[in-house]
Design a protein around this nucleic acid. Structure first.
Length: 496
RNA sequence: GCCCCCAUCGUCUAGUGGCCCAGGACGAAGCCCUCUCAAGGCUUAAACCAGGAUUCGAAUUCCUGUGGGGGCACCA
């Protein structure tokens, strides 16, 4: 069966941090393009000069690359439909605005912001729906042309039909009928000469031959407008797909600054850059976000390749989805367990470096099997395996005293451990574990008591990877040194 | 206020008139394994918003209500 290659686009505006919503639309765009042998495009919608944030564009490109969603065309990679930054496409929009004016679908408007504000307040006072009052809609073309040549400032507005209904077709929701009188004469071209989203996105999607427009459902309100603009140009419509929005974890409303801060405190975030720093993997983030809005019956752990294979715009869902960070943890941990040792090692190393550890590659490779199934995020490698790279560990006396025992008895146990281990030829777990087990048997103490003291002495923590495997990596000399240190601490504690 | 969208376990979802006393996943609970913590295995609890209509038969179709979400800018 021949499938027409899809051309899809992610069109973010560089006004802040790249967030989950953008990543998820980009993912679906990417999957659809790859699956059909088409292209995935990045277009920067930077027409709002006032809200522009320095560095935001770079963050988007970095985020997309980090996720592995490499675009085929974009500002920094080029492409034959460029430029891919809307501020560099001014003339295109001016020309298209003119086309609409000439064919009677749009008109210049000279109303001042003050006039507009006044109209709005009057309408509010009368409990009317706010809408443009149409002052300039009736202006004669030559009159308008004169005022323009006089240098008067103006915008271009779309001449929305006052009667009838517009039927817009969304791939997920079917036909959506809206009475035209509900719509406004929206501004297409601003007085600074730059287009609004309504003009820019429609023109670009056509010029760039986009076949499927995937965007957030916040665009549903102006969807009929967009359809009218496309028709005013006489163009074919792309397949429109309005994705559901994300709700905050409680399911009540959108994610706010407050919730974002709360999530961050909990080690989560809706910002891609944060996720990277918090130790989440692209695989985990992608798999997780893919499933919020895409109904997969079973076997929902997927790599990007598997997603490309299984993706279908028909199985996208249209209801809002509450963000569930616990599920992110799950997918992240699952994908960590799926990685090869070498891959995981390469990803963990930066986190150790960030903490100031000297990373010995041989040691790192050895500890991977010990810690991998304990990692939820990559940076958990610090808490689970930081001690492997330390010269000395700092011990809390209270941690060294085993449950049900006092400092004196604990010190005795530590001394006995030292005695047994120092007599061994190596610290291989196969060598060290049997004599220690034998000691436990004969001592009358429990496994937890004895191994617990040893664990804290050697690793400095109450929770660690398997004891003897860990000791093997640390080595005999360092282990004994640390146990000696523990004995001294317990002796001191005893005398208090 | 007006317009639009949505409605299955706590959450993400499967389900397109009989395969459904509703399946999977996260989370929760219990058991097993166990040197801590995990991982793993097994098990349990947990849902079709309400009311009408169509039909031999409805989670699935249609109305109404209710609830939730989104939008009403020279922002995207």
């Amino acid at each position: 069966m021949f499938i027409k290659p899809a051309r899809t686009r992610i069109a973010p505006s560089p006004t802040g941090h790249m967030h989950l919503g953008t990543a998820r639309v980009a993912l679906y765009d990417y999957l659809l393009a790859k699956q059909t042998g088409g292209q995935f495009i990045l277009r920067i919608e930077d027409t709002d000069l006032k809200r522009a944030v320095v560095g935001a564009e770079q963050e988007i490109m970095d985020g997309l690359r980090w996720l592995g969603l490499q675009y085929d065309e974009g500002p920094d990679v080029g492409g034959k439909y460029g430029p891919y930054r809307q501020t560099e496409r001014r003339e295109i929009y001016t020309q298209h605005a003119k086309i609409l004016i000439d064919n009677g679908s749009a008109y210049p408007c000279f109303c001042t912001p003050e006039h507009l504000e006044k109209v709005k307040q009057e309408q509010n006072a009368r409990k009317e729906n706010p809408h443009y009052d149409g002052t300039c809609r009736a202006l004669a073309p030559d009159e308008a042309a004169k005022r323009i040549s006089n240098g008067e400032k103006y915008v271009v507005r779309f001449k929305m039909p006052k009667e009838g209904i517009t039927i817009a077709h969304d791939h997920l929701r079917g036909d959506i009928a809206t009475e035209n009188k509900q719509l406004n004469d929206y501004v297409l071209l601003k007085s600074d000469g730059l287009p609004t989203y309504h003009l820019a996105a429609i023109v670009d999607d056509h010029e760039m031959q986009i076949t499927h427009v995937l965007r957030g459902s916040e665009w549903l309100g102006t969807f009929p407008l967009h359809v009218n603009i496309v028709r005013a140009f006489g163009w074919d419509e792309p397949t429109w797909i309005h994705l559901s929005v994300f709700l905050k974890p409680s399911g009540k409303g959108k994610m706010s600054k407050r919730e974002a801060a709360a999530a961050m405190k909990d080690g989560h975030s809706i910002f891609i850059k944060d996720m990277q720093e918090l130790g989440f993997t692209p695989e985990g983030v992608l798999n997780w976000s893919a499933l919020m809005g895409w109904g997969v019956a079973e076997d929902d752990v997927m790599t990007t390749a598997q997603m490309i294979e299984r993706f279908s715009i028909d199985s996208l869902t249209s209801s809002p989805a509450a963000i569930n960070f616990q599920k992110l943890d799950h997918f992240n941990a699952t994908h960590i367990r799926l990685m090869t040792n070498n891959d995981l090692a390469a990803r963990l190393a930066p986190y150790y470096v960030r903490e100031g550890f000297n990373v010995d590659d041989a040691v790192l490779l050895k500890i991977i099997p010990l810690i991998r199934e304990r990692l939820v995020t990559l940076d958990d490698c610090i808490s689970f395996g930081g001690f492997f790279f330390k010269e000395n560990v700092t011990l809390a006396p209270e941690d060294l005293i085993a449950k049900g025992l006092d400092a004196k008895r604990s010190a005795e146990i530590a001394r006995k451990c030292y005695e047994i281990l120092s007599a061994l030829k190596s610290m291989d777990h196969a060598t060290a574990e049997p004599p220690m087990r034998a000691y436990v048997e004969s001592s009358g103490f429990t496994v937890n008591q004895i191994f617990g003291i040893l664990r804290v002495a050697v690793t400095g923590q109450k929770v660690s990877p398997p004891l003897f495997e860990s000791m093997e990596v640390i080595g005999k000399e360092k282990c004994l040194q640390r146990i000696q240190n523990a004995i001294e601490i317990l002796e001191k504690e005893k005398s208090l």
